[in-house]
Lab assay of single mutants.
Amino acid sequence: SADYSSLTVVQLKDLLTKRNLSVGGLKNELVQRLIKDDEESKGE
Rank of each mutant, 00 (worst) to 15 (best):
residue 31 V to Y: 01
residue 30 L to V: 01
residue 1 S to D: 12
residue 27 K to C: 06
residue 6 S to N: 14
residue 24 G to K: 15
residue 14 D to V: 08
residue 44 E to R: 14
residue 41 S to M: 13
residue 8 T to Q: 06
residue 11 Q to S: 06
residue 39 E to Q: 13
residue 32 Q to M: 09
residue 26 L to F: 08
residue 22 S to R: 08
residue 22 S to T: 08
residue 7 L to Y: 04
residue 10 V to M: 12
residue 33 R to D: 01
residue 25 G to V: 01
residue 41 S to W: 11
residue 9 V to P: 06
residue 31 V to G: 01
residue 7 L to C: 09
residue 22 S to M: 07
residue 18 K to D: 08
residue 12 L to W: 00
residue 44 E to F: 12
residue 9 V to M: 09
residue 33 R to Y: 01
residue 10 V to S: 15
residue 43 G to Q: 13
residue 38 D to E: 05
residue 12 L to G: 00
residue 41 S to K: 15
residue 36 K to S: 10
residue 5 S to M: 12
residue 25 G to Y: 00
residue 25 G to M: 01
residue 26 L to K: 13
residue 24 G to I: 15
residue 30 L to D: 01
residue 26 L to R: 11
residue 11 Q to G: 05
residue 40 E to Y: 11
residue 34 L to H: 00
residue 44 E to C: 15
residue 3 D to T: 06
residue 18 K to W: 03
residue 32 Q to H: 08
residue 21 L to T: 02
residue 7 L to N: 04
residue 33 R to H: 02
residue 22 S to Q: 09
residue 39 E to C: 10
residue 41 S to T: 12
residue 41 S to L: 11
residue 33 R to F: 02
residue 4 Y to H: 03
residue 21 L to F: 00
residue 17 T to K: 15
residue 41 S to G: 11
residue 35 I to V: 10
residue 38 D to M: 06
residue 1 S to T: 14
residue 35 I to A: 07
residue 30 L to M: 11
residue 34 L to N: 00
residue 13 K to I: 14
residue 7 L to G: 02
residue 22 S to I: 07
residue 26 L to G: 15
residue 27 K to N: 03
residue 30 L to C: 04
residue 34 L to F: 00
residue 32 Q to S: 10
residue 37 D to P: 02
residue 41 S to Q: 13
residue 14 D to W: 07
residue 11 Q to L: 06
residue 14 D to L: 07
residue 42 K to N: 11
residue 3 D to Y: 11
residue 16 L to N: 01
residue 32 Q to K: 10
residue 32 Q to L: 08
residue 16 L to I: 04
residue 11 Q to A: 08
residue 19 R to K: 05
residue 30 L to G: 00
residue 36 K to F: 08
residue 22 S to N: 10
residue 28 N to G: 11
residue 1 S to N: 14
residue 5 S to V: 09
residue 24 G to R: 12
residue 15 L to T: 04
residue 39 E to R: 11
residue 36 K to W: 10
residue 7 L to D: 03
residue 37 D to Y: 14
residue 11 Q to N: 04
residue 31 V to D: 01
residue 14 D to T: 07
residue 21 L to V: 02
residue 39 E to H: 11
residue 33 R to K: 05
residue 11 Q to I: 06
residue 25 G to C: 04
residue 37 D to G: 06
residue 31 V to T: 05
residue 6 S to C: 10
residue 26 L to S: 15
residue 18 K to Q: 10
residue 28 N to Q: 13
residue 34 L to W: 00
residue 44 E to M: 13
residue 19 R to W: 00
residue 26 L to W: 06
residue 23 V to A: 10
residue 7 L to M: 15
residue 25 G to A: 03
residue 34 L to C: 02
residue 19 R to A: 03
residue 19 R to I: 04
residue 37 D to F: 12
residue 8 T to N: 09
residue 18 K to T: 08
residue 39 E to L: 14
residue 18 K to A: 10
residue 36 K to V: 08
residue 18 K to Y: 04
residue 31 V to S: 03
residue 20 N to H: 11
residue 25 G to E: 03
residue 9 V to F: 04
residue 40 E to F: 10
residue 44 E to Q: 14
residue 6 S to H: 13
